[in-house]
Design a protein around this nucleic acid. Structure first.
Lengths: 86, 86
DNA sequence: ACATTTTGTTGTACATGTACTATATTCCAT
DNA sequence: ATGGAATATAGTACATGTACAACAAAATGT
């Protein structure tokens, strides 16, 4: 594992779209194992691949990759304070 | 040289700030030769390094790196049509 | 319960990113 | 014109990203 981990939302983004790793891999033009490595954070992609991923999901790189762990989309969209407690 | 080139504005950004490659390299925590390689586009950085560069210049990755060649800042800021012709 | 698909693991191989050393060249100041 | 700084070039070495194959484990649908 690399010293400086980069977190990503690949698994979630992929799940939201109901894609298998193989699906995503084909869309990106990489081996399906590579998607696995990335999702598990075993290494971070090249900048080139990061751009392809960004294009694929139509999201800026910063929305997909970060040095800080991501908060769940759900949490970000429905903040703590606004949640129904019952 | 890598197949898929990624263009960047490193040289310009560095020039704007009056930094030597060594200065920038120290700021980024890389070898000064590495900055040279990047500026010349001989290879593109790891995503990790791209994030460090993004932090250093306080710009999004997309403002510094692109698959398409960049138009000069000057041109982008002062579009063709608005230029004085005399 | 079974078959199929999806995901994880291990191992090998190769390409690319980064560091480092050394030397050459270009660019400024003075 | 000389010297020092900045940049370019070349070579070696090592780390990390990516592909590929084989197999195990888990999840899913019927």
């Amino acid at each position: 594992m690399p010293e400086k981990t980069i977190y990503n939302r690949l698994a979630v983004l992929r799940a939201e779209r109901g894609l298998s790793r193989q699906d995503l891999a084909s869309g990106l033009g990489v081996n399906y194992q590579t998607v696995g490595y990335l999702e598990r954070g075993e290494y971070s992609p090249s900048l080139e691949l990061a751009f392809r991923i960004s294009d694929f999901f139509r999201l800026p790189i910063e929305a997909i990759f970060s040095r800080e762990p991501f908060r769940p989309f759900s949490e970000a969209l429905y903040p703590e304070e606004t949640r129904n407690t019952q």
